[in-house]
């Protein structure tokens, strides 16, 4: 139980750090600086603010789903083994 919750918290902290970096970091605080780079017709900071951050948000949620499903499976297996 303790192990499950601590692993969950570790995953949460990593994913939320990325969440913060792409939106508040690249989209707002570092946005003007990133604007000196370009992808196609977009300035990079502007692209993160209006497009990129949203794509990363989706990837983050599905990464969490994947990691937690794996952890859930491991946890229920451990519990079965202990029970028997």
């Amino acid at each position: 139980m303790d192990y499950y919750w601590k692993t969950n918290l570790k995953i949460l902290i990593c994913l939320l750090a990325i969440w913060f970096l792409v939106s508040f970091g690249f989209g707002i605080l570092l946005s003007d600086w990133l604007d000196q780079f370009r992808i196609g017709g977009f300035k990079l900071g502007f692209w993160f603010a209006q497009q990129g951050s949203i794509y990363v948000f989706i990837i983050l949620i599905f990464t969490y789903v994947y990691l937690m499903n794996k952890l859930d499976k491991k946890f229920s297996k451990d519990r079965e083994e202990k029970g028997s």
């Binding site: 939320l16 939106s23 603010a49 949203i54 948000f57 949620i61 969490y64 789903v65």
Partner: peptide, 25 residues
């Protein structure tokens, strides 16, 4: 957003980023 330009990004990030919090927390 058409009238706000880049300032309009607050709605784009604000109204999608909340789903990360919902799903994770």
């Amino acid at each position: 957003i058409a009238f706000l330009g880049k300032d309009g990004s607050v709605y784009l990030m604000g109204w999608t980023g909340g789903y990360v919090l919902l799903a994770l927390l």
